[in-house]
Design a protein around this nucleic acid. Structure first.
Lengths: 146, 146
DNA sequence: TATTGTTATACTCTATAACTATA
DNA sequence: TATAGTTATAGAGTATAACAATA
């Protein structure tokens, strides 16, 4: 059975509010305060998907190429990524995450998961309620990934 | 029955990933591109809770007082808030949202809800799945609001 | 003296425009 | 000519330090 328009809008409103509030709360947890949201997103992308060029990173993070140059400069200065000139096309620069960069991503994820787990523990949810949250997470990702 | 630690952590990881991805996608929708995330958060706070001083706004948005001065300057220049000197304590400045400011908040919320409703419609969820999302939204808010 | 808000100054993130090197 | 990346420059958002006005 397909959902009514009213149910869609009610759900959208509820979910928007809950999502923004939770994201805001979790965003404050990170492994170092010398790294910005975009820098962290770049590191997470590189860790998941391997090396990328500057322009590909710019496109994926929806910033301009000069902005991505500056973001990568910052990450390189902190030792979290390394630049390599592409051998085949020497205009291109390949960006790789370093072990230190991986450590930052892993630690930030760990802290955020820990914070959220603590929040969930505080409320003392039942197994069924946690299952609802996991089910909803899968549904949310399905909507975003379309 | 209380939840196991493993279930808590699994749920936290799922929910963190889903929440960040959805928030990121929805954040791009706003009524005007002359307004920042913090400015929008200030307007939303003023709309919900009425007038506030600069220092209260700074505390609530977790920025410094000079930063909030600058944020309110930007909102005032665009006609979205109005400053009034407090009659009782003349060091204080009360900030009120204007009708134009309310309109920006309402329109931004409308666009985000519309975008999310469209995303949910695309996936063609059942009524039961939408109910799961609404249930989860309530659970998420309970965790954040503690 | 303490508090509220602003100004001065500096750094980061972002953009557009102009440039260099390479294809 | 077109593309990949960088540099130059400017505007917004943030911070800390110093200041003015008021309590």
């Amino acid at each position: 059975m397909s959902a009514t328009d009213e149910a869609l809008h009610l759900t959208a409103t509820d979910l928007r509010m809950a999502t923004f509030r939770l994201a805001r709360r979790l965003r404050s947890a990170r492994a170092t305060d010398t790294i910005s949201d975009t820098q962290l997103a770049v590191l997470a992308d590189l860790r998941m998907n391997g090396r990328r060029t500057i322009s590909t990173l710019a496109e994926r993070e929806r910033v301009t190429a000069p902005s991505m140059t500056s973001i990568v400069n910052g990450l390189e200065e902190q030792g979290f990524v390394a630049r390599t000139q592409d051998a085949d096309d020497r205009r291109r620069v390949q960006v790789d995450i370093t072990d230190a960069g991986i450590a930052i991503v892993v630690e930030t994820i760990r802290r955020r998961d820990e914070l959220l787990a603590d929040m969930l523990r505080e409320v003392d949810y039942t197994e069924a309620e946690l299952a609802t949250l996991r089910d909803a997470s899968a549904l949310m990702r399905r909507a975003v990934e379309r």
